[in-house]
């Protein structure tokens, strides 16, 4: 009985699937799926290597500081970093006094309440504050940016496939649209062509426009490529500040486990030595 019912149910599913399949195949030949414009022109991120790649990877503190400088001078006007606190900059090798100064001089102030009157007010940031958002809310952000929302960058390298390479490619990928790009995919008013962006056209003007846009304190030559790479490294740190700890712990744990597993194997073999199985 079970088998009879089962067979009937199975044949029912097979019938419907067969109809679906035939419909799909006829549709496929009647109207072969055309390659979408995005699919044709979109490019995978460029290959770029960083000091934190691989299981032994570490951050390059100098690079992170340079990347922070690029963020501060270029990105911070529009993009927040609201999961990172000024105090976290100690990880980049800044001293406590430097961090206080950075917080105190940050161009965007922190919303607060006037202790006398209870009115909303703004105050200077302190080390314990997170990076203040450049816009009061999403509506303000959209209003100021042609209805495009500049995303918060705290997690951007984890929120995109191939995170650091994607950020690097996007920053260095602005170019004139290719001649064979169909008309409907050409960048409209206030949009810029970038084959590394999923939609091909994005509202962010090229942020890193010229060599020497920032002046690095450590004397590194601020080429566009260098700046894009440095800020990608910095944004990897903001997304995964515990990366070095993770790598270090991982190596120790794996070494321990390897020894323990070899011992467990030997023990298993010893115990079974007298048993055929």
């Amino acid at each position: 009985m079970v088998r009879l019912l089962g067979a009937l149910v199975g044949l029912g599913f097979l019938l419907v699937l067969a109809i679906s399949l035939v419909t799909g195949i006829t549709g496929f030949f009647r109207e072969p799926p055309t390659e979408t414009i995005e699919h044709k022109f979109h490019q995978d991120p460029k290959h770029v290597s960083f000091s934190f790649d691989g299981p032994f990877g570490k951050f390059d503190r100098q690079q992170l500081q340079r990347g922070f400088q690029v963020y501060k001078e270029v990105c911070a006007a529009c993009h927040g970093l609201n999961l990172v606190a000024f105090r976290n900059l100690a990880d980049l090798g800044y001293e406590e006094a430097e961090i206080k100064a950075i917080a105190n001089q940050w161009a965007i102030e922190v919303p607060d309440i006037n202790p006398e009157t209870g009115e909303p007010t703004m105050r200077k940031a302190i080390a314990a504050d997170r990076f203040p958002n450049p816009y009061a809310n999403e509506v303000a952000a959209r209003a100021a940016n042609n209805n495009a929302m500049p995303p918060d960058l705290s997690l951007i390298t984890k929120a995109r496939h191939h995170g650091p390479a994607y950020v690097y490619s996007l920053l260095t990928g602005y170019q004139n649209p290719p001649a064979n790009l169909p008309k409907e995919a050409r960048p409209g008013q206030g949009l810029y062509y970038n084959p590394y962006f999923p939609n091909l056209n994005l509202a962010m003007p090229p942020p890193i426009a010229a060599d020497g846009q920032v002046t690095y304190a450590d004397g590194t030559n601020p080429t566009r490529d260098q700046m894009a790479k440095d800020v990608s490294a910095f944004l990897t740190w903001t997304a995964e500040p515990f990366l070095e700890n993770r790598h270090r712990t991982g190596i120790a744990v794996l070494l321990f486990l390897l020894v323990a597993t070899v011992l467990a194997y030997l023990s298993y073999r010893q115990i079974w030595a007298s048993r055929k199985h």
């Binding site: 199975g10 044949l11 599913f13 699937l17």
Partner: peptide, 11 residues
């Protein structure tokens, strides 16, 4: 693949 899945168990 779904056809095979059901066919496998039910038939």
């Amino acid at each position: 693949a779904t056809m095979y899945y059901f066919a496998h168990f039910l038939i």
